[in-house]
Write a protein that binds this DNA or RNA. Structure first.
Length: 208
DNA sequence: TGCCAGGCCCTCTTTAGGGCCTT
């Protein structure tokens, strides 16, 4: 991947031991799916060993146990590998604020500060503006709403990252469908999506 | 399945409170 590639987006999903690094939660698994235009161009996933205990609820939710992490690479090794592999491109996530805080925390712990504060795109914010007719904006609900192909067990990093990537491609398609003539051939990229997610929220009304 | 947090968004609002979304 080229460092000059400005159309590259990284769809990220973390599995973690809790909801906030400030409360001591650490990542247990990370997945990144790289998207360029309407193509999935690469993917990466890895379990991450931190030594932090996994609450029973989290083990039931994700299927990730402490025993599974005993042989996993240290979290810092995984994050450094990601930093070397990925140019500093925008992150996409489903409720990206959650994944971005773990991205920042784990990158800083791995001594990769240059990768700690990427631009963000949130598929929850976009979905609330694009699909007010959906029952809710949970990832599984939106996947079913759009009849996206199952990508594996939900609440595993790669499956959720792939589902989020497919949701993003669906959003690109819908944006082009609704705004095609206004776009005048301009690409549906981070800059455009960033403007769309910043539009005022209108309950029950699609912004397009 | 829920609690823990944080940001966004809504309404019986703005000097506030509660729901949604992520693990």
């Amino acid at each position: 991947m080229s460092w000059e590639d400005r159309e590259l987006l990284a769809v990220v999903d973390f599995e973690t031991t809790g909801l906030s690094p400030r409360q001591g939660a650490r990542a247990t698994e990370v997945a990144v799916v790289w998207v360029r235009g309407d193509e999935l161009v690469d993917q990466y996933s890895s379990l991450m060993h931190t030594g932090v205990p996994i609450p029973p609820f989290i083990e039931r939710l994700t299927g990730i146990s402490e025993r599974m992490l005993e042989t996993a690479n240290p979290a810092a090794t995984v994050m450094r590998e990601l930093a070397e592999r990925q140019p500093p491109c925008p992150l996409i996530g489903h409720n990206v604020g959650f994944d971005a805080q773990f991205w920042r925390d784990e990158m800083q712990r791995a001594d990769c500060p240059a990768h700690a504060e990427p631009a963000r795109l949130c598929t929850v914010k976009l979905a609330r503006r694009l699909y007010p007719q959906a029952p809710n904006c949970k990832l599984g609900t939106l996947a079913a709403f759009h009849e996206l192909a199952p990508q594996g067990r939900a609440h595993r990093a790669l499956a959720d990252a792939l589902t989020t990537a497919l949701l993003w491609l669906q959003m690109r398609q819908d944006i082009v469908h609704h705004l095609g003539s206004e776009l005048g051939g301009a690409p549906v990229n981070f800059a455009l999506a960033d403007r769309l997610q910043a539009l005022p929220f209108a309950r029950g009304e699609c912004l397009l």
